[in-house]
């Protein structure tokens, strides 16, 4: 019984496997062209017609035969044969833009959780001091580390290097990297994210800031004037000494709260990413915008974006896009 008449209680039946069934039906999984080879753990990969091969990731040699150690798609590059998994943890590579959460402070570094195989460290020497001063970090800086990032805070950073043992070093030596506040964090399987030239997107027309971390964490936030300035400064070739005063001014006066309109756009963008994740579709700016625009055009309410009706529309759109791409 609804206690208050004003709020209607909505009940949705849980249909297990509905999304999978939807994908199978609309994208014709079983009629898909079979020019790719799928393998499962322990399957033999044929090396016929090849004289010698290079054993890549996801494979092992048993009795002279190449055998897969993970489930996935077989990829061949000249002599190299490897298996690409469709679902695994993030593997850090140098230069990746990532979003992470500060786990704790360890000596001269912050330990950052990237949802990766191993922990990542952000050294105190790898962050910008306020005002862009260049000097050695002393013991006092070490004591004041919490004034930069506290435990539990979200940051964006770049992978500086990956050590031989797999551990990761980060840096935030640019105005565009740093603490993330007042926005939404989304978790996406890292394999759904494509590595691109740009991972920071400031959509000025919509008033949204989008950071697609290579590690599968995506940040969506209303665009703040100071962040816009930072993005412009970074694009113009590094923040000069003039930018430092602005930084301090912005830190002193909190930015005006975003409008309701702006927040709605952010939520819609976040929901578009959630829809893509749920349908196992790649997450990149074009696909996010296509889903976002489909929701706007269809006048789908924010809360209804996860409903089967809209999911079907998105999959249908994707199927159409693919068939037109095939014809060209």
């Amino acid at each position: 019984m609804a206690a208050a008449g004003a709020v209607a209680v909505k009940v949705r039946a849980l249909v297990p496997g509905a999304d999978v069934a939807l994908i199978e039906r609309v994208l014709n999984v079983h009629d898909a062209p079979s020019n790719t080879t799928f393998v499962c753990v322990g399957d033999e990969i044929s090396t016929e017609g090849q004289e010698g091969f290079l054993r890549g990731h996801g494979t092992q040699v048993v009795d002279g035969k190449l055998v897969a150690t993970v489930c996935g798609v077989v990829e061949r590059v000249n002599k190299l044969i490897y298996v690409k998994t469709l679902n695994s943890r993030y593997n850090a590579e140098q230069g990746d833009v990532v979003v992470g959460r500060v786990a704790d402070l360890a000596g001269k570094a912050w330990r950052v959780d990237l949802k990766s195989r191993q922990e990542a460290k952000l050294l105190l020497s790898a962050v910008h001091l306020p005002g862009g001063i260049q000097r050695r970090r002393n013991a006092e800086d070490e004591l004041n580390m919490r004034s930069f990032f506290r435990e539990g805070e979200l940051i964006s950073a770049e992978v500086q290097s990956v050590h031989a043992d797999g551990s990761v070093a980060l840096h935030t030596r640019s105005a565009k990297y740093g603490k993330l506040v007042c926005g939404q964090l989304l978790e996406v399987p890292p394999n759904l994210i494509k590595r691109q030239k740009q991972h920071f997107h400031t959509l000025e027309a919509l008033g949204v800031e989008l950071i697609i971390g290579c590690n599968g964490l995506v940040w969506v936030a209303p665009l703040r004037p100071d962040r816009l300035a930072a993005a412009n400064a970074a694009a113009g070739g590094g923040a000069g000494s003039a930018g430092a005063d602005e930084d301090e001014a912005a830190a002193a006066a909190p930015p005006p709260p975003p409008s309701r309109m702006q927040l709605e756009v952010v939520c819609r963008m976040a929901n578009a990413i959630r829809v893509l994740t749920r349908l196992y579709m790649p997450v990149y700016p074009a696909s996010i915008m296509a889903t976002y625009e489909a929701a706007v055009e269809g006048e789908v309410a924010l809360a209804d974006m996860m409903e089967p009706g809209f999911l079907e529309a998105v999959v249908g759109q994707e199927a159409q896009r693919r068939s037109s791409a095939m014809q060209e």
Binding site: V20, L27, V29, P33, S34, L86, N87, Y280, M281, E318
Partner: peptide, 10 residues
């Protein structure tokens, strides 16, 4: 199924 949804086969 995952590969097709991801558009790998296409």
């Amino acid at each position: 199924r995952l590969a097709v949804a991801r558009g790998i086969t296409a």
